[in-house]
Amino acid sequence: MNDTTILEAVDLRKAYGHGLQRMPILDGIDFRVRKGDFVSVVGPSGCGKTTLLMALAGLSQPDTGEVRFRGQPVTQPPQGLAVVFQDYSRSLFPWKTARENVIFAMRDTAQKTRQERRDRADELLAAVGLKEFAQKYPWQLSGGMQQRVAIARGLASESDLLLLDEPLAAVDAQTRADMQDLILELAQRFDQTCLLVTHDVDEAVYMADKVIVLSRRPTSVATEIPVDLGKRRDQLATREQPGFLHARHEVMERIRSYRSQMAG
């Protein structure tokens, strides 16, 4: 391991069920995420992306293999790692306002006064463009706004690594493009390494420095495709660059080969 690796999956294996019912989900997953990188994970549907994410977050244990975060084996959710879930309407606390939701995620509450925590929460809400909505409850906000609150909450835990579990799957197309740019901007500004799980190939390539393509279940890493487009992305220009089109083509081709295998 070199010292810029922040997250590492080593031969992760996991199966559900026993005996004849036994179904292997993860079949030897290996990859590394370097500090400061934005990595996308894509794969054919039903390939165990959620199972993988749960293992990476320390929320479930693999049968064999290991997840290492900053070089330490992950056996429970480690400090410095935050998850933004797909279903924002179920992950935010409806009895708390946007500000209270963000404050809830602050870990070092003992060292901060009430006012300091409030100010920090408002700062994070301003960063996701919700300055005026701090006092609103999640159910008073649109889907895109709720997901922004969830992202602000992820940042509030002072993480270095954000695991994003299909965070934009449930928002409309226009909001989606805005949110992609917002997430990229926040990753830079708050110095976050990001691992984005998505089923959208265009999104995976647009956001990432590296795309990890997963195979069909039982899942392993099919290939890793670097995306050399620099840190600055633009919804129009980036998507027209040859590098983007090339990476997109390769990812698509891989995933399509699994789909046609399934059909055949």
Partner: peptide, 28 residues
């Protein structure tokens, strides 16, 4: 919702804290 409980676990909350700070208010 599972996501609310997982959010608590990601923040390192104890089972008791998850019970009283997340599950109970959600069930009220």
């Amino acid at each position: 919702p599972r996501e609310q409980i997982l959010t608590g676990r990601m923040l390192g909350l104890s089972p008791a804290a998850i019970m009283f700070r997340i599950k109970l208010p959600a069930a009220m």
